[in-house]
Design a protein around this nucleic acid. Structure first.
Lengths: 365, 365
DNA sequence: AATCGCACTTGAATCGATTCAGGTATCTTC
DNA sequence: GAAGATACCTGAATCGATTCAAGTGCGATT
């Protein structure tokens, strides 16, 4: 039979550890060592750290001294295991290359650091497999919650996380069925505003450059564009130039394809699904084709990333409040972890038209 | 007195948990539940997960079935606590806004995901306080290791982490004293190459735009620039235009200050400490001052971010192998965690001159 | 039939922080 | 001075996965 008390009855752990270990200092101090040094119990040390109001000033002082002397740092794994609270949240990002998401992450980080929370970061690069992998990883980590700009349809997966006590907030994507909170920008309205602007400035043959269409934002923006075209009193044509990714390179390729046509078949304006594409289009038109922007072809993008203003021809764009999106998403996430009973809510921002040189009114108008 | 065996002697935990809990499914299955369901001991389940070679095929099958049926996910906190292995690494980044660091993170992430490791992410924004906060956070988390592009002098801090068994690898920064591994690009040589290129293309009055000088890369690049100037057979002037941050906005402000001078005092070339600054300078020269680039003033940057090529005038730059830096840093970090006895090593890449429109040879030459 | 090795399984002890029932000392109140 | 309230402290039990000494069963060897 086992001696129940063995190892529990005031064994001088601190000493034993040093003894077993040999190289002093290699092993981190635990709460036990702190208690020993401060001359109090482990419970008191824990209380000093977690509910200082229940502890005498004297104990607080001695514990803090011991902590400083030993260089004690709380072991988050043990804390997480016992108390079930986590100080990390996961963020699954669609495209880490896109400065737009960089800004969103930054917003979330600002809010997180205010709560001493760190962000676990994962790029999916529009890859279902990676998306799944990161969610698995985050689940194992028992993160406090997950922010995600989803690529595939992951509702079932999010349900399961929620069942495990890990809430999720969709970022830059509206939650269709309302079963999970979301923070997004209305891409349909954004698409409409962009194209209305093009029509108002005299364009009649519009090319929508974007893809892949698995990405919801792309289809939404196109849908908005079509609404603008349909609602226009004047006849306006719109065509779709599909890309395989939302990158500068794909934008440049699309632009090159456009101007490879006979001049009579050129559009007079391009609405790109995001700024990376728009910058690529811009570059191919100007550098590759020596085409006058906006006179021959106007270009507008979406997101208003920092580089839009610094482009060859300063780029008009639909601004998303990116920092705010990240900050809001994280705040909602924390509220939901604090009170799991909360009903999911959808926060939608409106994009804002930012007019720059690339869509100046057409000359011939 | 306590009954020692209570709760340990084959209690039907699975059932009890369900009973206490009420709402079925809310609580995650533990390894105990899996063992119960598979009809084996917890030790065997653990072995299936960690050393399948020691387990019979039959057990493996049954355990995997039980895992699938219960939707079991390993609790990383418990694993970390007992086994001391962590599946996260921390990455403290100087400036998350800079696409260069975005690429570095991406490279690290590629390598990490290959090892089922997630990256904890922290932006310091060149703020000592935030830098300290993130290191604290990562230490509590007991990350497997830390990648860091340091702002302040954090060697003592890294020593302490190492003493705790958490190695660190400096990213984009050479380790002066060789006490910690690093992966970097030789900024001095890079600065020299950039300015040599400017001199070769006929420039004689060079302005170095950069700052703050607390950032090592900035001083290194300036030092390299000075070497090129000193080694030049022809007399070349160099002046320093200090900025308070490495941003597009600061670059634009610096550019504006330059061209606010009488024309006779203008430099004929600008070497910016990074591409963000360079793009800002470019923008202020072209849009703000209607100055011909590169004929009146040439501009070269550093990093060769994706947007350099898409700028108003395609920007020459010193390319850093950013993805490779991230990937290499993570690989070294993992090697060091596997074998803590490894001697720190410094990996240095050479930057590569990428010539574009913004430094085309001067007309007057 | 005894002995040994091999393949596999078992389950208590363990990691470190938190929790909480129970305990002690001091102070109030009538 | 007894009863009760208050303030604070203690330490065993706990979270869930891993580890490892001990054990079981079976076939091969002598």
């Amino acid at each position: 039979m086992y001696n129940c008390a063995a190892g529990q009855d005031g064994y001088p752990f601190g000493v034993l550890r040093g003894f077993f270990n040999g190289e002093e200092g290699r092993m981190a101090a635990s709460i036990r060592d702190v208690a020993l040094r401060a001359g109090v119990s482990v419970g008191t040390v824990s209380n000093v750290l977690n509910r200082p109001d229940d502890v005498s000033q004297d104990s607080i002082r001695r514990v803090h001294e011991a902590i400083a002397e030993l260089g004690y740092v709380r072991n988050d794994a043990a804390r997480k295991l016992r108390a079930g609270v986590s100080s990390t949240v996961g963020f699954v990002v669609l495209d880490g290359q896109n400065p737009f998401f960089g800004e969103v992450v930054r917003g979330a980080e600002d809010e997180a650091s205010r709560n001493s929370i760190a962000i676990l970061h994962g790029n999916t690069d529009e890859d279902v497999e990676r998306e799944r992998m990161y969610l698995d990883l985050f689940e194992e980590q028992q993160v406090r919650g997950v922010l995600i700009s989803p690529y595939s349809d992951i509702n079932p997966r999010l349900e399961r996380l929620r069942a495990r006590g890990i809430p999720a907030v969709l970022v830059d994507r509206f939650s269709g069925d309302g079963r999970v909170s979301s923070v997004s920008v209305d891409s349909v309205i954004g698409g409409r505003m962009a194209v209305e602007h093009l029509i108002e400035t005299g364009r009649r043959r519009i090319a929508f450059v974007g893809g892949p269409f698995e990405i919801r934002q792309v289809t939404d923006r196109l849908a908005g564009a079509r609404v603008a075209v349909d609602d226009s009193p004047e006849p306006v044509e719109i065509e779709v130039v599909a890309t395989s990714a939302l990158t500068v390179a794909e934008g440049a390729a699309a632009g090159a394809r456009l101007i490879a046509r006979p001049r009579a078949d050129w559009p007079d304006a391009v609405f790109a699904a995001n700024d990376l594409l728009a910058l690529g289009v811009l570059q191919s038109l100007i550098v590759g084709g020596r085409i006058l922007v906006p006179d021959e072809i106007a270009v507008i993008g979406f997101d208003d990333i920092a580089f839009a203003a610094a482009a060859a021809v300063p780029l008009s764009s639909m601004r998303q409040p990116s920092r705010m999106i990240g900050r809001t998403a994280l705040r909602i996430l924390l509220e939901e972890t604090d009170d799991p009973g909360l009903i999911p809510r959808q926060t939608v921002f409106l994009p804002e038209l930012v007019v720059r040189e690339s869509t100046r009114a057409a000359q011939r108008r």
